[in-house]
Amino acid sequence: MRISPKMATLLTLSVIMLIAPFFFPSAYYFRIASLVYVNALAVVGVVILTGYAGQISLGHAGFAGIGGYACALAPVYLGLHPAASVVFGALASGVMAWIVGRPILRLKGYYLAVASLGFGILVSMVLTNEIAVTGGPDGMKVADLGLRSWLSERGLSLTNGQFWYTITALLLLAGAWLALNLENSATGRALRALHGSETAAGTVGIDVASAKLTAFIISAVYASVSGSLIALMNRMITPDIAGYMHSIEMVTMAVLGGSASVAGGVFGAAILTLLPQALTSFDQYEQVTLGLIMMLVMIFLRQGLLPGLASLLKGRGA
């Protein structure tokens, strides 16, 4: 049986997720790997928006902020279970994306970039300024998900690191599966078509504005769930999650690895999450490196690293 690209991506991802823990030198690495998966989840959303549909958002951290703070606030104010808060945050993000995106996505070019950027900054401003509710710049505590103790009562005891590794890995797999399903569906094809030519997409009956809006909402939900996971995993949250730099990082991860495919996005997320960990004195040079990577990749490897590497390997093989 021939393996479809979709199955290949999912299998590779699962194998890596299963094998990686055997090579972790310390428990700390479970946490780093979980961060990779959480970031990758958000980036898969960016792949749908930017890679499939060719639209760029510079405010996706705003949705991560909504998802994150939903987990912090909904249990306190609405009495929701943290897990339900994740869903609540995702719904709220979807609705916000609809409100922000609906008027903007009729326009072409850089308008979405600017509008989303404005939206992201507004969210982070509210989170920073409404100290009475959000705790301001210092952030606030987040309730325990409770699932780990539930599991250990039933005989499955995991360390905190192992637990979050499992949760984030499973959710990333689910997210990747959904995005890959979408890629080769009517909706996904419509998105990739309008990416190629909005005019032609219109002539085959694709409602370009509403297709873009669909992509924007779906990707907002990805960012939101990713934000929720960060909050639940860290048991606390600060407005940084909604910051401009976080938005930029998401986009950069996607385009660095190759935003056209889920595999590329995940690859980019892994590199940009691991790089700062690998270079201990990286802190001071983080910005310079990030900026340089963004420029170089877009100028010389517009398709991203993964497609670039793939074509290099193909060239060798032939």
């Binding site: 930017t50 060719g54 639209q55 760029i56 510079l58 070019g109 850089y110 970039a113 930029i248 986009v251 950069t252 385009v255 001071q284 040079y285 983080e286 910005q287 310079v288 490196t289 990030l290 900026g291 340089l292 990577i293 963004m294 420029m295 877009m298 100028i299 517009r302």
Partner: peptide
């Protein structure tokens, strides 16, 4: 100039990259 004819998305990312890069250099 090197990225002439690149799609809007690429150009946006290039100029943001430049912005972050310049900030980083000045900070160092």
């Amino acid at each position: 100039e090197t990225a002439r004819n690149a799609p809007v998305v690429s150009l946006i990312i290039i100029t943001i990259g430049a912005s972050i890069f310049i900030q980083g250099v000045v900070q160092i």
